[in-house]
Write a protein that binds this DNA or RNA. Structure first.
Lengths: 245, 245
DNA sequence: CGACGTGTTGAAGGAGCTCAATCTAAGTGG
DNA sequence: CCACTTAGATTGAGCTCCTTCAACACGTCG
């Protein structure tokens, strides 16, 4: 836990400004939010279902995913998050976590106390509005995932997920949409697409055979983005991207 | 379109106070939100995917559901809403609707202009926070639906949906959890559970045969709530109910 | 009365699952 | 540096839950 208050929260500011233009005072208030930075190894829980997390986590580097389990032990993944994402605002503001958040690989995280977020929201309504809108985009993505696992076949589902990851990685400046490293194992991919790992594997190979992308280990290269987007029934509208992206 | 400003928005106030205790000024500001009341027949679109709705809809009576369609025309239902639900805050605050909202049966709706909501949020941060939390609960329900359609079998899925409807109907004072009228056709039930209407029909009959409930037309009676909740792998945690419910 | 929306039933087929084995790469300890 | 372990990826064979297609029943409402 290292304390420092320099420009660590900048990724949050730039993300949040997609929705609301903030004046200098508001920007300062956001950047000066008290926080501590922590580094986690792979597979660490940032929050566990049922807990009342005292703080929210802002991802500074690495990846994390939200998930919950059913009564018979099956896991369902709800979202994949990357640097710049406020991974746990939702659990934090609702007091008791209804799902878990777990790291993928090594991650750096800024921890912000619940009461500090509440104070910021009360003192700077525009900042609150911006954060609110950010959580609404998350909700829009959840809805798209319902649609994805509900009404698309395995190949389309997986292609859709790859498209979303690509676009968001690019948006966050992590990599390019047609050229990125998959942060998920095939088993995790399966839990994110409501399939089995075995079937994910077969479907990935089908898609690759169709020339939609090539893989080297987890590294994905997309030769024709448009074709992949079409195969994945993918339209960026639900991501509510800033301007033209 | 009838204009009146009396206690029409009371259901919103009582819902929102689940999350934040509001003082008199804040309560008044919420209740005095400018609005108009409209009545819609069954199957009317309150918002259509792609539109930029100028106002948000608060359901005063009746039911509505959120949905979107895939490229090949299949429909996916994301939520069912009832009196007291702010059905379209999400689309409204994000400018462009990423999904549609359609009525079920005859409904009464309060329409509130986008800029009036924004003004309220800026002038009364506590009210904004409360509304924000309300949308976070919606997001929690979306996550549960991802889990439901992803990792539960047909019977469990349907039982789960019935449980959720029952609890929420009771919470909203519409009916009792073990004794309510289903607002959905079997085809809509299918789109909400990622099944086909045919299979929903067979599964409903199986569940009924197992004594989990009885049906008369759309009227559902649950003899043993606990048993249904168990069959549906249902736990109210994700609904973030107020106190003990 | 006819038409339409909704619910119910039957039969056949398939997309994805299960179980189980094998392969590979990257540790890890001796 | 090698034997051993382990997580993840890949492959095969059989099976099942759910789908598809196609009737038919029932009630309501023009």
């Amino acid at each position: 836990m290292i304390r420092d208050n320099l420009p660590v929260l900048t990724p949050l500011l730039s993300k949040v400004q997609r929705w609301q233009r903030l004046d200098e005072k508001e920007q300062a208030a956001l950047l000066e939010l008290p926080h501590s930075v922590a580094v986690f190894g792979p597979g660490k829980y940032l929050v566990r279902e049922g807990e009342a997390p005292p703080h929210a986590s802002l991802l500074l580097s690495g990846f994390a995913f939200r998930h919950k389990s059913t009564g018979n032990g099956a896991r369902s993944i709800h979202a994949v998050h990357m640097a710049g994402d406020f991974v746990d605002l939702q659990n934090c503001l609702l007091t008791r976590a209804d799902h878990s958040v777990q790291t993928l690989g090594k991650t750096k995280v800024a921890l912000i106390q619940r009461q500090d977020i509440l104070r910021l929201a009360r003192e700077h309504p525009n900042v609150a509005l911006a954060l609110w809108q950010d959580t609404l985009v998350d909700a829009s993505i959840f809805r798209e995932w319902i649609t994805n696992v509900s009404r698309r076949d395995a190949a389309t589902r997986i292609a859709h997920l790859l498209c979303e990851l690509g676009v968001r990685l690019e948006l966050h400046g992590v990599s390019e949409r047609d050229n990125f490293e998959l942060p998920l194992t095939q088993e995790q991919l399966a839990d994110a697409t409501a399939l089995t790992a075995v079937h994910v594997n077969r479907t990935l190979m089908d898609l690759e055979r169709d020339g939609l992308f090539t893989r080297t280990a987890r590294f994905v290269v997309v030769p024709d983005w448009h074709r992949l987007a079409k195969a994945g029934d993918f339209d960026t509208a639900y991501l509510h991207l800033p301007v033209a992206a």
